[in-house]
Design a binder for these strands. Structure first.
Lengths: 227, 227
DNA sequence: TGACTATTCAAGCGTCCGGTTGAATACTGG
DNA sequence: CCAGTATTCAACCGGACGCTTGAATAGTCA
């Protein structure tokens, strides 16, 4: 084999390492979760709906591709993205999928329409109202994620506690719930519950990361903690 | 299986379609070639060093992922990128690989150093001289690619014809050769040949696409043909 | 030190994937 | 209509991959 051929082969083989790393759906889900913040293997496995051993395996593939890093924290191993570029890249992939694969929109529409949570209100219009403080903003993600960064003025009520903490929400004010992003279902469930209880509720498609990506302000409990 | 789980699974499965498409080295090479401009199956197969049937197979995978499109042109089928976003995405992948995978730089360095073509001159400094017209700029890519877009003032001599057309180059002027980008080897071979023949020659790392990406002017034979 | 536990390793199974080969298809040009 | 050709299809093989199961490892906490 000619030397230039050898060279090209090894270069593209390296590029393909990244491709292989993001070629399994479950790995992408893990990556998405890690974009929200660091987690333990167990948490990742549970949230992605796979066994711990399987999650561990996938995570090692991601680590071999240098997309994630580990750190021992007490009894647990914490996994986190190897850098912000990784998250950026994942978002680029997501954007490309949305723009080129009609199926993504179909699947999303089918699900959200079935749950009756498709927005009548324009996303832009809703974001405007959120920024102006005209509505009660509800962050239904786990508290750690809220702490790492949230939309200014948002209330933190994890989706699991919402039913029991409904009284914290003023009944006469429109509620806008959000979670991790356009494909996160927690806000959808929150809106469903709220409407059943008589609230006027809408779902904000953007997650905190999209929010920040637009250049809008994000509040964090520990200043400097960007994730 | 719970409905949200089903939904997530199908969403990430869609994302993974793109991942799978770029998980094979040869497919990445084909994508890279297509970033330079449309080609026939035969040309792609030859340039990537694989059989025609194999290339056709890979191209269909890329097409299934909506990354490339086909158009029948006379006796040939022309493949081209499905959109500029695809090229952008490929470059994002390349950038991520360069920043996260030390191996890429190692492989590249090993090859270029072995061929003695590692730049003593800084890339920035060289680009400056090219833009000021202080050197003879040589485009060693196939004529079609030159026609689709080249650095202003560049001479088009395909690498295969260089030996026979050396007399077209002024001997007393520094020559700077370029081809498709940092991992394209044609310019390396050109510099090798030129130096052997007594020229002062350097290799410009950037290809036309990188050149344009920096906001610098590109000349095209057919105005409007951006690739 | 010893019990406990989060994580990783190892082996096995079914499936998918990349590449080859040879034939089929579809289209051009005379 | 026919010969020629570019491309695709179909079948096949070896290897890699995803997931499961069960055991091993490494570390913590009492």
């Amino acid at each position: 084999m000619t030397p230039p051929r050898r060279f090209k082969d090894s270069i593209y083989e390296q590029f393909a390492r990244l491709g292989k790393a993001i070629s399994a759906p479950k790995r992408l889900e893990l990556l998405d979760l890690l974009c929200q913040g660091p987690r333990t293997v167990e948490a990742l496995a549970e949230q992605a709906g796979i066994s711990v051993a399987n999650a561990s395996q996938h995570l090692q593939v991601l680590r071999a591709a240098r997309l994630v890093e580990t750190e021992k924290k007490g009894l647990y191993v914490e996994y986190r993205l190897a850098g912000d570029e990784v998250c950026t890249f994942f978002f680029a992939l997501r954007a490309l999928a949305e723009s080129r694969l009609a199926e993504v929109e179909q699947v999303a529409r089918a699900y959200f329409e079935a749950r009756g949570a498709m927005e009548a209100v324009e996303s832009e219009e809703l974001a405007r109202r959120v920024r102006k403080g005209e509505v009660t903003v509800l962050d239904v993600r786990p508290p750690e994620e809220y702490r790492a960064g949230h939309i200014p003025g948002a209330l933190s009520i994890p989706i699991g506690e919402l039913k029991a903490r409904l009284k914290e929400l003023p009944k006469d004010r429109e509620v806008v719930a959000y979670c991790r992003g356009p494909y996160c279902v927690m806000a959808v469930e929150a809106v469903e519950l709220l409407r059943k209880k008589g609230f006027t509720a809408h779902r904000l498609e953007q997650g905190v990361i999209d929010w920040r990506a637009r250049g809008w302000r994000v509040e964090a409990e520990r200043p400097g903690a960007r994730r």
